[in-house]
Design a protein around this nucleic acid. Structure first.
Length: 957
RNA sequence: GCGAGGGUGGCUGAGCCAGGCCAAAAGCGGCGGGCUUAAGACCCGCUUCCGAAGGGAUCCCUGGGUUCGAAUCCCAGCCCUCGCACCA
């Protein structure tokens, strides 16, 4: 039978579907407490676009583990659902409705959406449904993922919303939700919060918290915005933009002077703002204001470089530590006419000198001056100024130490005390704060985007007791790979309160305020529990799924007052049967949020027995060495790949090219290589299947080389199993497939394959390998295993090591033969001769006895020598013994204890004699084996004396 | 900056955790050979340098160190990639 993956795979898919092969229900035979159930999850896909080959791997890795556990005899649940919460799908639909060029190209060129179905995509769920059905589900089924499709749902389903409602009501009741204000990106045009997706300009810009140093003039506060609050003692003057409009306003009961834009932002940031008067900045130029910390009066100078749309629009000048300020001051001094025009006495400006407030390594007393002068910068327009400024800021932040005037903060590193210092002044009322972007941000609606405070609900991940519980979850978690454990702890440590609602989007409404929607990372923290009951929940009317229902389901009948819902208690059994999640597979970048949320929520809502058992992290995918990008069309669709190579090839490549947590790279050339290898495997298997089953008694009819292969098979079973236990799909498939191919290559060369014993060995090996490979390439292995034995590979148990075939001795003997073969080949390569006779000389008995001594005495040359010289027979040989000891000490050092012990049992001469036939075939020459000190030795060129134990001398003629 | 990962032969990429069968897997590419009317497919061998005997030299980012022995362990340095929050 020829290998036709398309036909073969279609058959198996149909069979699986018809028999509901992967639809497990709780059984009475499996004991869930006895780890006979395995529950595997992977993040449900977000169908805002199609599936590509990167997604294919994400879902195939857990499938391999699922298939492995099934062969190990477990009840395995591997479900799938669809995440549609939030705005990306809505945004995609909006862009489709506007027929945006980029969006149309993604849909039509990348994902082949045809014109006649385009209109179906114009509702959010219609859009999602299209990609679910036409891409994800089809793709997953083609890949042969062993998913229980009965349990499928979307996060926009009514019943799912009921479940999330229960979750959030419960969390609120337990005090894990709090209402508060939070800075958000806000479009002043639409008067609505916006997400990164909604931005036209400044997508990457993060908002920053500016410290406002509250300078004053009489009753009026002039808040100077700065990102470096510690420089407050270095202020020599202030700057205002003379051409921009400013206002006098009452802010939270104080008289403030800020730019017009700043007044609007402060208003949005929950300050009580009342504007009294608007005026030009020039009006305030030449005034004096008082530093709240030092009490010094400083002069307000005019500066066009001040952006009134950044923070308060008034800034303080620290010429000693800011190259910008230093140059601005120099330029001001150089232009007395301009100063006079503003009514400023040039002499007063001339008298201003930089005031250093910290010492920093690598710079002089006045770092800004130093930096500017050594870089040769003389103008504030110099393009290099930006870099120089950044260098000074960095150096000062990381290595700058404050002067004595800072009292308790003196001599401390800026990076250690900046926040502390700012907070202290803020508490005294000398400092304030506001949020703003350092660069302009514009929404797609064309409106300016600013930072606004919005009423929001937080998950209080900053609660210390909750953090402590989450850490307990980590403590009992099996983190894979092991070195990710610290990342969870680290995330728990720095995780702050998390705003868990949005103003709009798909998903579940906040139960007590339906103007908000629970956001995607917050409605997906315990949904794994929902899988266990999803298919049976469909039979229950939505309105019955209230608080009490889920309380009974998850907490038992005692958790509800009165009679618990019988249906809920029924479902409880299934929940408890599968829970907890045995292994969750997820992306490595989700540790810092989603996965850690998952731990937090389980810690809070469920008992320890239901906490996650394990998490395996997955890496990223590249395509031909580059990042995949659906908008650039740089993707490979699974459907196309399967059509080209077959699902087994696609799976095998994805699983074998890297471990799950490593990044991998889809390269067409290499995928083709895999296809070739699998085809060859298939063809060789067919030859064995077609041949008659030999009548062999393995106890008597096998030769040394057969036993060698069977011994190697046991090692392969061992390493494949161990690797899969850790979800190391690469090591496992590498061992079972490529690793063993290497052994087979040698076996084919060494053995006479027509013997019944060899045929039996090959069939036995094939059967075992088919089972080992079944999780990776289920279609091909099922088919071949069924042809060979009548049962599909997936229904056969996972192979166990057959210890009767394990033999270190056989392997070591074969190793000696291999070495001898290589040595002969080496000599032939160098001498370039055509051999007629090859003579092999095994070392003499006295040499063997020296080897014995080294083995027993250890690898200290002195010790061995004194031991050996006790023997008169050896002492006579003097130098020869000395040389031999050196060699043997080196040999013994390179061997492990087991091999050393085995060598003791091996008879070299008879080992080589078994290989004479092979060597004669191999080199088309006569092969003779002699003992160096044996009778009738033929040694024409005196080579026998060169023999060393386990390193025979060779003569070729 | 914080956190994580990494630098290996023409390329991709194992090995490193548990130091020694490591001149360093496998694939790709290249070279040679077999099979074939031929092409493809398939199979075999070679692919750092030197060598007319299984050997030697140099080698795993750089520089030190530990050790009988280092791609592997330790220290210092250089370089690269990824994530860092309201985006799923």
């Amino acid at each position: 039978m020829d290998y036709d993956p398309q036909e073969l795979e279609a058959d198996w898919r149909a069979r699986w579907d018809a028999e509901g092969r992967y639809e497990p229900d709780p059984t009475t035979t499996a004991d869930p407490d006895d780890e006979e159930t395995t529950f595997i999850t992977v993040p449900y896909p977000y169908p805002s676009g199609g599936m590509h080959i990167g997604h294919a791997r994400t879902y195939t890795v857990p499938d391999v583990y699922a298939r492995y556990r099934r062969q190990q005899g477990d009840d395995v649940l591997f479900p799938m659902a669809w995440h549609v919460t939030g705005t990306p799908i809505i945004g995609a639909v909006e862009r489709l409705e506007k027929r945006e060029e980029k969006q149309m190209s993604v849909l039509q060129d990348t994902y082949n959406v045809s014109d006649d179905v385009l209109s179906d995509l114009e509702t959010p769920m219609g859009y999602a449904r299209h990609f679910i059905e036409e891409h994800y589900k089809t793709g997953m089924q083609s890949l042969g993922l062993s998913i229980d499709w009965r349990r499928e749902f979307t996060t926009n389903d009514d019943r799912y919303s009921k479940f999330i409602t229960w979750q959030y009501e419960t969390l609120k009741e337990r005090g894990r939700l709090e209402k508060g204000l939070h800075p958000v990106k806000y479009c002043t045009e639409q008067e609505n919060p916006v997400t990164t997706h909604d931005l036209l300009e400044g997508e990457d810009v993060e908002y920053q918290e500016y410290t406002l140093v509250k300078f004053s003039q009489g009753e009026t506060t002039i808040p100077m915005a700065t990102l470096r609050p510690e420089t407050v003692r270095g202020v020599t003057n202030a700057y205002i933009n003379p051409d921009s409009p400013y206002v006098e306003a009452t802010v939270d009961g104080e008289q403030w002077l800020v730019s017009v834009e700043a007044a609007e932002k402060l208003d949005l940031q929950d300050h009580d703002v009342e504007i009294h008067r608007e005026f030009q900045g020039s009006e305030f130029v030449g005034e004096h204001v008082t530093n709240p910390v030092t009490g010094d009066e400083v002069l307000v100078l005019p500066a066009e470089f001040v952006d009134s749309d950044n923070a308060t629009g008034v800034v303080m000048s620290v010429p000693a530590h800011s190259p910008d300020d230093y140059l601005a001051l120099q330029e001001a001094k150089a232009d007395p006419d301009r100063l006079e025009a503003y009514g400023i006495d040039p002499a007063e400006v001339e008298a201003i000198e930089p005031v250093p407030i910290l010492d920093v390594e690598g710079y002089g007393e006045i770092p800004a001056k130093d930096a500017v002068e050594s870089a040769g910068i003389t103008s504030s327009n110099d393009p290099d100024l930006k870099e120089v400024t950044q260098d000074v800021y960095n150096a000062e932040f990381h290595t700058g130490r404050l002067h004595d005037a800072y009292g308790e903060y003196a001599d401390e590193l800026i990076e250690d005390v900046r926040d502390e210092l700012a907070n202290a002044y803020r508490e005294q009322g000398d400092f304030g704060a506001m949020y703003d972007f350092p660069e302009p941000v514009v929404s797609r609606a064309g409106g300016k985007v600013v930072v606004a405070y919005q009423d929001t609900w937080f998950l209080t991940y900053n609660d210390e007791d909750w953090k402590a519980e989450a850490k307990r979850v980590v403590d009992q978690l099996d983190t894979n790979p092991a070195n990710t454990r610290g990342e969870y702890d680290h995330t728990i440590d720095w995780l702050n309160e998390w705003p868990c609602i949005r103003n709009y989007g798909l998903g579940t409404k906040l139960p007590w305020d339906d103007s908000f929607v629970i956001e995607p990372l917050s409605d997906s923290t315990i949904y794994m529990a929902y899988y266990t009951i999803a298919h049976r929940l469909d039979e229950i009317p939505v309105e019955d799924l209230d608080r009490e229902f889920f309380d009974a389901l998850f907490y038992g009948e005692d958790a509800v007052e009165g009679e618990a819902d019988k249906r809920a208690l029924d479902l409880r059994d299934e929940w408890q049967y599968w829970y907890p999640v045995t292994q969750r597979f997820s992306a490595n970048d989700l540790i810092s949020n989603h996965l850690t949320f998952y731990l937090f929520h389980h810690a809070e809502l469920f008992d320890e027995a239901q906490w996650p058992d394990g998490i395996t992290i997955m890496g990223m995918g590249l395509l031909e060495g580059e990042k995949m990008s659906s908008s650039k069309g740089h993707v490979v669709l699974p459907g196309k790949a399967i059509e080209n190579y077959g699902a087994d090839t696609v799976r095998f490549f994805l699983l074998n090219s890297a471990e799950p947590w490593q990044d991998y790279d889809w390269r067409a050339e290499q995928v083709e290589g895999v296809e070739k290898q699998l085809r060859r495997f298939w063809n060789r298997a067919q030859e064995l299947i077609d041949a008659d089953e030999p009548d062999v008694d393995p106890q008597t009819d096998l030769k040394h080389i057969d036993r060698w292969l069977l011994s190697k098979l046991q090692t392969t079973i061992e390493s494949t199993t161990q690797a899969l236990e850790n979800a190391e799909t690469r090591s496992a498939s590498q061992a079972a497939f490529y690793g063993f191919e290497e052994h087979l290559k040698w076996y084919r060369r060494r053995a006479d394959l027509d013997r019944p014993g060899a045929q039996w060995t090959l069939r036995h090996v094939l059967e075992t390998r088919l089972r080992l490979l079944a999780p990776f390439i289920p279609f091909m292995t099922n088919e071949l295993h069924e042809q060979l034995t009548g049962t599909p590979a997936e229904d056969a148990p996972w192979p166990e090591v057959e210890s009767e075939w394990q033999s270190a001795r056989t392997e070591t003997e074969e190793r000696q033969i291999e070495r001898l073969t290589d040595d002969i080949q080496d000599i032939l390569n160098v001498t370039d001769q055509d051999p007629e006779t090859i003579r092999v000389y095994v070392a003499a008995d006295w040499k063997q006895s020296v080897f014995e001594t080294v083995r027993e005495t250890g690898t200290n040359v002195g010790d061995v020598m004194s031991e050996v010289m006790q023997v008169p027979d050896l002492r006579e040989r003097g130098n020869a013994v000395n040389q031999l000891v050196q060699d043997l000490v080196e040999l013994v050092r390179s061997l492990d204890d087991e091999t050393l012990a085995v060598l003791d049992e091996i008879d070299e001469t008879s080992t080589y004699e078994t290989a004479v036939g092979f060597l004669e075939r191999e080199y088309d020459a006569t092969v003779e084996i002699y003992a160096e000190d044996g009778e009738g030795i033929d040694d024409p060129e005196d080579r026998a004396s060169k023999a060393v134990p386990f390193r025979p001398a060779i003569h070729i003629e």
